[in-house]
Design a protein around this nucleic acid. Structure first.
Lengths: 195, 195
DNA sequence: AATTTAATTTGATATATATCTAATTAGATG
DNA sequence: CATCTAATTAGATATATATCAAATTAAATT
């Protein structure tokens, strides 16, 4: 998924004149002056827009004597129009759950943390404990390597029993340890919270 | 099909920052500062973009104490993403034919008209004759009322036998006559060319 | 070669907009 | 009521872009 291409497509389509051109060409190819005439604009303006539409491969052209006919590439439009929804569907199925989970998470965090951000106590229930870990771990930098001492200090911000929490971080794959150096795991590896 | 709404949607989505916001929210709701942090932008900038996303109903919000959580409205996105392709499909089925028909029409016109635009002879074959009529009639103004004499003069530009051609215009519903006044019919009424 | 026609390029102008900093608002909490 | 926090508004700046008129290019025709 190249974000740039998707954005370029939407940006180009986000202009009334260009959509009108596309709409015209959907009924069949036309040459530049015909488009200009039908839209009440000058040829340079049409050239300007056609250039942008060509850039995103939405129109192609074919010369016939002195006049150039512009064709619509429907396939590209259909393909790109799907791209945005696909971007959602990558995670889309989980969405409804996640909305509720997010609300639940807020509630749990509110219960187990003091206002100044310290952990009152470690929840016994697995799901709640994992939400708490996720919250704490979210303050660590992705890709950064931490000394054990650093990690201890960091956790102590939240709770005195840093040893337990640090061990849980490893057990639940939030972090991994190599030669005494700690580093955050990619999120996909973290312990999963089922609802 | 409101063109404006479609254009507004595409225009709003045609910005990398906004697509990144949408992409973030697809994983679950977030509050403003979280978005700002993840994108490396300031809160005012996020407010600016969220306003635009709200305008097209792509995000909604829900307040919880002091912080506002922003939610993605997937339904709206899926719906709007379809709109552009639907705009094509309104006429889309005829498209492949029309592309070829357009090429065929060019060829026929090239055969039956001289370089200075006069009609060499009236084709005997119905399809070709209709293409010729379409071409001639395309020089008349929609909505304008013509005297019979005007029509004759106009047709004589193309061919001496204006009477035959004028009669064919009526027979094939390119024009209608009332009290000796001629006027162009809407295109839907014209004789249809089947391939 | 000279002319015509359609398209493009150039340059100008006006408008829109993405981003920031600084100031302000709105709620929640002490 | 004073304070804190998150969001928004206001104002500034820089960049992008839609449009047109005038000049130029490119191909076809005479």
């Amino acid at each position: 998924m190249q974000l740039d291409k998707l954005v370029a497509f939407y940006k180009t389509m986000g202009d009334p004149t260009r959509v009108r051109i596309v709409s015209l060409l959907a009924k069949g190819p036309l040459h530049g002056q015909a488009i200009a005439g039908k839209l009440g604009l000058t040829p340079p303006t049409i050239t300007h827009h056609l250039k942008k539409l060509r850039d995103i491969s939405v129109v192609t052209e074919k010369r016939d004597k002195n006049t150039i006919y512009f064709y619509l590439n429907q396939k590209m439009i259909k393909q790109q129009a799907k791209a945005l929804t696909q971007l959602l569907e990558e995670r889309g199925d989980e969405m409804e759950n996640m909305v509720e989970a997010s609300l639940e998470k807020q509630k749990i965090l509110a219960n187990f943390f003091t206002k100044d951000g310290r952990l009152k106590s470690l929840p016994a229930q697995r799901k709640k404990r994992l939400y708490v870990f996720e919250h704490i771990v979210s303050g660590l930098k992705k890709g950064k390597k931490y000394q054990e001492k650093e990690i201890n200090e960091y956790i102590k911000q939240f709770h005195e029993d840093y040893a337990t929490i640090r061990r849980e971080f490893i057990m639940n794959h939030y972090m991994y340890r190599e030669n005494g150096i700690y580093e955050l795991n990619p999120e996909e590896m973290w312990a999963k919270i089922e609802n």
